[in-house]
Design a protein around this nucleic acid. Structure first.
Lengths: 335, 335
DNA sequence: CTCAACTTTGTAAACGCTTACGCAAATTAT
DNA sequence: ATAATTTGCGTAAGCGTTTACAAAGTTGAG
């Protein structure tokens, strides 16, 4: 059952059938009705493979997400999809996992489906700057790339980022200026964004004349990214005699773990321990008192991604790099 | 950049290039290496639509998710994707939003991108049973549909569910059997799964000879699904004089809200108030004490979805309905 | 060396659709 | 009434693959 069968049964040419399919105006209402009737009667469904071959644009944007399980990225997906849809674009999402080969596959999968552009989420993609990672350059030759929370200078690649460095620095300064001396820094990701945050923390310390102490900086791998794991880790740190009066972290959930540590070791928040989280997610509201958290304006960033993409696709030029400032949302966990 | 360009640059015919693409054995190793090298160098990605025109399958599964922002569904995405990928299938995700028109669009989008099958996540899709919702039947005529956590009897539709009714009933009974009398039931979703949970709660009460009291059953809309909102709501309930000694809910986050209510009103958990959550998500570990929660075996369910889909696609027959039992994970929030 | 059998590669015809182009017929303008 | 324009439709040329079939090349036995 194809367009030829329909054209024959309807007594018209395949071009007319195709025009009916595509809602072209160059068909008389009478013919249109007739062809539609025949299609309905025959239960005809156009073959999308063939369709895609002919069309140049599918009005589809590919979203590449390294980890859909991350609530922060999941939220980004929601925002991006909503905004693209509102502008007449469908989204195709490929959640690849963090391994490089998976990401390459994800990019190729989306390209093979002829997306008009791609949004790459999360700075896991940043290693494209490294030599030998040509897959992004190649992708950029075919369609515009917009990177969310990652910076990458290349033709046809556009970046939308939040200034994590400055945000973490300001959070650190805010803790110091409220009288804290020993700020524990907990982080999860060693990617570009993670490194910027860490650098911000260090810059914050130095801006107030304090040294960078390695014993205050701790990394949490994927399997340690849970509230109990962080709680237990801080308990053991305290047990070993480490003194700290504030915790700053790169993800809210780490700070929730810190809050739980405070609870079980009967340290009052914020009097005895100040805590600041990052992302201002729903985790920040789980604690008592609620967590002060860095809001990095995810929705704003996503909307910027979309408008950048739309500009590029419509031939207008767009800024290669768009930077937003994060905002420290103060709640009960800090003085 | 197409197969002709590659064939030209590699000095072979398009047939040979195609054979390399498809891993055909009828190519000499030397030629294969050479062609692969040229493809890599040129960043060539085959056009999936042209491909699909010849082959009949794109080796791609569509995942339909009503809300990627929901950590529970986000986790499901991760599990599904991992398992499909391990079996040679790519995944395409469409996060539609909950509105019916969005879901219809999502289904059509995936069909138009030529997926070999679709997994529909979350029982928001259940309303397909209602009259006039033919889009699922139509989709099922084209590709097999596997529904995760939703039941729907129809040709070419397969269901994988957890027995929410029984799980909620057992959780209720467990509370009653530990001496609780007045169990507050908080729920978010009115979809099929939500109704089963509610019915399970009611059945649990009746199995112990207790009446169903409307003043103990409370619905939380999307915008009330936050810890502070639930906390405040329970505070106001208590202020109005309602007595309750346990909280059971349809989502962990609602129970976190209950825990926070307990905290601010100085009721001890579990002595004065028992709390049970649902989904056994990371939220359950945020509280002190940690929440007892119903673990509905998401990973097991997802794997069942994948193996069901693979069976159907390979022509074997698969069970129309697969049911797993949830498990009550006891932690500190219950006696 | 010859011929058969097998391996490797190439040619060309689908696959089902879109669309540029062209020609009638219908409509409007002159 | 004739010319100019618009409308409706058909023809045919792609779109980028796959694959049947054919051709050419290779190997080994006689």
């Amino acid at each position: 059952m194809n367009i030829y069968d329909i054209s024959e049964k309807a007594g018209v040419s395949i071009a007319t059938v195709s025009r009916v399919l595509n809602g072209s105006s160059r068909v008389s209402p009478k013919t249109r009705e007739h062809v539609l009737a025949v299609m309905a009667e025959q239960g005809y469904v156009p073959n999308a493979f063939a369709r895609g071959l002919g069309l140049k644009s599918m009005k589809t944007i590919g979203l590449l997400c390294p980890n859909a399980g991350d609530p922060y990225l999941a939220l980004a997906i929601t925002y991006l999809e909503r905004a693209f849809r509102a502008n007449g674009y469908d989204c195709l999402l490929s959640c690849t996992g963090k391994a490089r080969s998976d990401r390459v596959k994800g990019v190729e999968l989306l390209l093979s489906k002829l997306v008009d552009g791609m949004v790459l989420m999360g700075s896991t993609f940043l290693e494209a700057n490294e030599s030998g990672n040509k897959y992004l350059q190649n992708a950029a030759k075919r369609v515009p790339l917009v990177m969310l929370n990652a910076a990458y200078a290349c033709e046809n690649v556009y970046c939308v980022v939040c200034d994590d460095y400055r945000a973490t620095m300001e959070a650190t300064q805010s803790l110091l200026d409220s009288g804290r001396k020993n700020i524990l820094y907990l982080y999860h990701s060693r990617n570009a964004s993670g490194q910027k945050k860490l650098a911000g923390y260090q810059a914050g310390l130095q801006s107030r004349g304090l040294p960078i102490r390695d014993d205050l900086i701790h990394f949490f791998a994927e399997d340690k990214m849970s509230v109990p794991a962080v709680r237990d880790f801080l308990l053991s740190l305290a047990h070993q005699g480490l003194t700290f009066d504030a915790v700053l972290s790169s993800e809210d959930i780490l700070s929730v773990g810190a809050a739980k540590y405070a609870r079980v070791s009967r340290r009052s928040v914020p009097e005895s321990l100040s805590i600041i989280g990052y992302n201002n997610s729903s985790f920040a509201l789980c604690c008592e008192p609620e967590l002060t958290s860095v809001d990095n304006k995810l929705e704003v960033l996503c909307n910027a991604c979309v408008s950048t993409m739309l500009s590029v696709l419509s031939g207008k030029d767009a800024p290669q790099k768009t930077v937003y400032h994060a905002e420290l949302v103060k709640r009960g966990s800090t003085l």
